[in-house]
Structures are given as structure tokens and as C-alpha cells.
Write a protein that binds this DNA or RNA. Structure first.
Lengths: 230, 230
DNA sequence: CCTACCGATCGGTAGG
DNA sequence: CCTACCGATCGGTAGG
């Protein structure tokens, strides 16, 4: 019987991987809060109890951290959506599952990765963009069949009977729906906010609407979906 | 008969104002292209043929330039929308006017102000945020009556007959619709692109869809509006 | 992963 | 609006 390898943590994950994950998690939080450019490598190091030069032991440079944050978000989004879809049976349930899950990865506490993707996309170098786009396409593809079915059933978009849901239409529909949801990143305020100094850092115009994510998802689904033409 | 004051330009505007306007215009272009943080005061100065220290003759600091850019966008948006609404008679026309105008201020060449507002909101200091919010509220308010009427007519949102368009519903509807439109800033590519080095700087996933702003506005209106329940 | 450090850049200013 | 400049900060590295 062999001795177990030394530095291993709870789930048999090398400690080095844990540190890397901690850097990704804290970076996401900081990027979401202050933006990529405004976040210092020293901020990141400090958040995980390192000194300023040490993050570069785990990442080649600051931009690689940004890339890792975005990848993490898309992976989580994909996994959660697949799981949610597996629980859904009706068409409406599938749509709601996708919407609710997307709201989750966008607004759940500790899930700032996708918001960073949306906010700081410009800061990602072109080479990295191409890699992220691949993972993002995989996520977006999860929406396509459901939206396609909704449009063909006349439950989404112009219910004109002329051309039956061209692929192009479905794509635009997805962009508009996901756009509406993504943009909540700028105005939706979490119900349960931590006890933190409340500076006016919300988006323009919007007094916090009292809605949890379930309510927001319901309203969103109801807003976009036509009621069953019974 | 008095002599006309010396340094005046075409429309009897002091040259100093022109220089200031040039700074705002070029800053908007640069901010939109590279982001506020990534844009240097030296970049801005260079774009209008000044030396690095000179923008501070017109603005107290870099943040004041950002504020001025956002104000300019909201003023233009307001003026254009009022003008467009004045041309519209039917409810559908009013909706389309608002949508089309918003697309214009978001995507027209030389109209990068609102995109900067959306992208770089975080970089604006809290004191300035409050000022901008006031102007933004004025712009948003232009949408409210039209959306209200649409919802009451059952042409927008859940066409359930239960509660007849609460103020809250209209607000959420506006946020979702404007969110969908605003988010096109990340994926819509102008048809006529200037002859510039085409680096892959677009948003993830989206191959450019062949649509001009009129087509995009039409599709958006059709996507959100129920057809007249004739 | 730390210590010690560097080169570059950046917003902003004085003084004209 | 220019010249000349400064203090601060920042990403990143060498060497252990």
C-alpha cells in the first residue's frame, strides 16, 4: 500500500490547483467590482494573501487571468444549463430553464465570471478572444433548439405565418433575448445585498426593483413568450 | 455698426468651444474603440493635434472628458428622439421611431457617445454619475408613454388580461427592450465599415449579420410587438 | 511563493 | 496651448 501523495486537499486536488482557483475566483470578484484595468495585480495577490509578484507563478501575465475567469464562467454556464435542461420536459420549461440559469450565472454571489466576460471583453487580447469564442459558441448553441422550436410554434417573435423561422431569425432572436438578459448586469440589484458600504455604484436611472432571480426569470419568460394560442 | 468679434468660426461659435467639442468627439471615438482606461490623455491630445498637457486647459481632468462624452450622447439622443416622435402618428410608428433612433445613436458613425456611456459607466466617479443619471432619466422617460400604451393595447409583453400594465411592468418592459437594443453594441457590425485594419475585435460568437440599421430596427420591432389582434 | 527591484507609462502641473 | 517635468503606479522579472 502506497503512501498518499503529500500536499493534497479535500477532494484530492493538488494544492497548486486550489491556489490557482482562488486567484480566478477573487480576480472575478475584483474585475466585476472595479473593472479589469482598474484592478491591480497587487489587488489580486492581496485578495488571496500573496505578495505582488506571486500571481505570476500561476499565470504568465494579467491577461491570462482574465481569460481563465471567462473560461470558468462559460464552463459553469454550460454545465448548469445542461443540468437544468435535463429537468425540463415541455418547451416552455426548457426556455425557462435556460433563462433562469443564465440569470444565475450572471447574478449569483460568487458567480461573477460571465459579468466579467460581458464587461471586459475589450481587454482580452485577440488571440485569447478566439479561444473564448469557441467555448462561448458551445454555450450559445444550447439555446438554439429551444428558440427554434418556440419560433416554429409561433410562441416567440413575430407570429406572422409567412416564413417559418429561418436560421437567421432564430439567431437574431437569441441575440435579442440574451441581450436583454445580459443587460440586466447593469441594472439588476441583488435582493440580499451583503452588509457593505453602499456607494452609488449602480447603473443609471434604476431604483432597485424588488425581485429575486426567480421572479425576474418568470417576468422575462412571460414578456418574450406569447401565451399558447389555445 | 460694430465689428464682429474676432476668433469666431462658421456658426458664430467661439473657437474655444470648437476645440472643446473636438476633444469630446475624438475622445468618444477613442473610448469606444479602446475603452476609457486604455485611452491615454496623450492619445486624445494627439487626435486633435494638441500636446499631452493641453486637454487640461479645456477639462479639469480625464474624468470630466468622460462625463462630457456621456452628456453629449444623451442630449443628442433626446433631441433626435423628440424629433422622430414628432413625425410619428400611430402607436406602432412611435415605437419604431424610438427603436430606430436608439439604434442610430448607438451605431451611427461619429455617434459613439452612448456606447461609451454603456461600456465605461464604471469609470465615472460617483458624483458625476448622479449628474448623468438625471439626463439619462429624461431620455428614458421618452419611452414610457409609448410602452405603456403598447402594453395596455396588448401589443407588448404577456398578453394576459389579468392586471392591466402596472407602472412596474412598463419599467421592466423598457429595461428589457432597451437592454436588448443596447446589447447590440457588442455584436452588431456596421455594414459599411471603413477601410481599416480588420483585427478580430468583434464580440464573441457572432458572424456579422447583413443588416443595416433600418432592417435591424424593423426586426426588433417585429420581434417584440405582437401583431395587431385583428 | 517571497524579496527587491526596474523600466515604462500615465495623469496632471508650473510657468510661460 | 506648449515645454518641461514630476510623483505615483503598475505589470512584470531575477534570483532565491
Amino acid at each position: 500500500m502506497h503512501l498518499a501523495p503529500a500536499a493534497r486537499s479535500p477532494q484530492d486536488v493538488p494544492e497548486e490547483v486550489n491556489r490557482r482557483q482562488a486567484l480566478i475566483r477573487e480576480s472575478a470578484r475584483l474585475f466585476r467590482e472595479k473593472g479589469y484595468d482598474a484592478t491591480t495585480v497587487r489587488d489580486i495577490a492581496g485578495a488571496v494573501g500573496m505578495r505582488s509578484g506571486s500571481p505570476f507563478y500561476h499565470f504568465k501575465n494579467k491577461q491570462e487571468i482574465l481569460k481563465a475567469v471567462m473560461e470558468e464562467g462559460l464552463h459553469q454556464g454550460y454545465e448548469r444549463s445542461v443540468a437544468a435542461l435535463a429537468q425540463a420536459s415541455t418547451l416552455q420549461q426548457r426556455f425557462r430553464a435556460l433563462v433562469r440559469t443564465h440569470y444565475g450565472i450572471l447574478h449569483d454571489e460568487g458567480s461573477e465570471f460571465i459579468a466579467v466576460l460581458l464587461y471586459d471583453w475589450r481587454s482580452l487580447p485577440p488571440e485569447y478572444k478566439q479561444e473564448i469564442i469557441k467555448v462561448k459558441d458551445r454555450y450559445d448553441a444550447l439555446w438554439q433548439p429551444t428558440l427554434q422550436d418556440l419560433m416554429q410554434a409561433g410562441l416567440l417573435g413575430a407570429n406572422s405565418a409567412h416564413d417559418p423561422a429561418a436560421a437567421d431569425d432564430v439567431k437574431v432572436a437569441r441575440l435579442l433575448v440574451m441581450g436583454a438578459i445580459n443587460f440586466t448586469a447593469t441594472w439588476y440589484k441583488q435582493q440580499i445585498e451583503k452588509t457593505q458600504p453602499t456607494q452609488p455604484k449602480g447603473h443609471p436611472t434604476v431604483a432597485a426593483l424588488r425581485m429575486d432571480l426567480d421572479a425576474l426569470a418568470d417576468r422575462t419568460v412571460r414578456f418574450f413568450m406569447r401565451t399558447d394560442p389555445a
